[in-house]
Amino acid sequence: MLVYVIRRVGYMIVALLALTLITFFLMKQAPGSFLTINIMQSGLQTSGHSSYSMDVLQEWSERYHIGEPWYMEYWGYLKGILTWDFGTSFQYPNTPIMSLLVKAFPISLGIALSSIILGLLISIPVGIFAAMRRNTWADSGAMFFSMLGTSIPAYILAVFLIMVFSLYLHWLPSMGWRDLKNYVIPVLALALPMTGSMSRYMRTSLVENLNKDYATTVIAKGGSKRDVIYRHVLRNSLIPLITIIGPHLAGMLMGTVMIEFMFGIPGMGQLFNNAAGSRDYPLIMVSTFLYTLVIMVMNLLVDIIYGLLDPRIRRSGMSD
């Protein structure tokens, strides 16, 4: 197990390095630079002093290795990441990137994680319910509603939820970012569409395991259906479910962007969107790195949990 984790961390480092390199090139490939875009949108060009852009360019060139060979510029960013000293962004030269991230990142991550947890908390019972009554109307009904959830995009669901919980019931605020109440609709809007695929996955996995001899054995030995589900089948059925959490999380971190815009939530979505749109290279590099790091760490954790749940993987050293 330890060997496995160490090897995985090794792969992660290589992948992260490759990713920073790819991000760097894609970023440099995108037309325009912060300077030209900032000049266009901040009114710099109309400010009347023609030497301004040259001064600023000079200053930035030194700070961010602009104009030097690409590997020097890349190394500038990489060094920042390696030393965990991210420096400052183009847009907010007075504020360390770290302090921007410290504010925004926990918000996005919190929303993404709570959505996934809520998604699981809903999907698992629904999946069990459907699997225990498989091929009955209850099963079809549960699966129909979960499919409905999947086919509705989060932002439309969000509007629906606002209408129900804010306009009609007056329970929850329709936007903003003040207290726990503000979490509810965004998290629901992200979690519910997820339950569609998750509960189907859960159901399929349960049915598959229920059809295995060991499940029949429990009954044959006098165990109850509850014994079958909760003591044996559930645990084995959760294993495949856990494997899809990783990809869901990656999707979720992207999905939060739209929801953050809709609810005016000051998370990574706004930060990254602004960074990309204005070619704020340092902020793009750092936030992409951080996103990837979180997704990779989450995937690693998922795999470790997977191993803990499945002795076949735990003992054989997770060779694959």
């Binding site: 295995k212 001899d213 029949t216 054995t217 030995k221 645990r235 499945d310 002795p311 076949r312």
Partner: peptide, 13 residues
């Protein structure tokens, strides 16, 4: 009951 596939019949966990 003893079935044909012992691998499936034993509780894997």
């Amino acid at each position: 009951w003893v079935s044909q596939h012992p691998a499936a019949a034993l509780f894997p966990n």
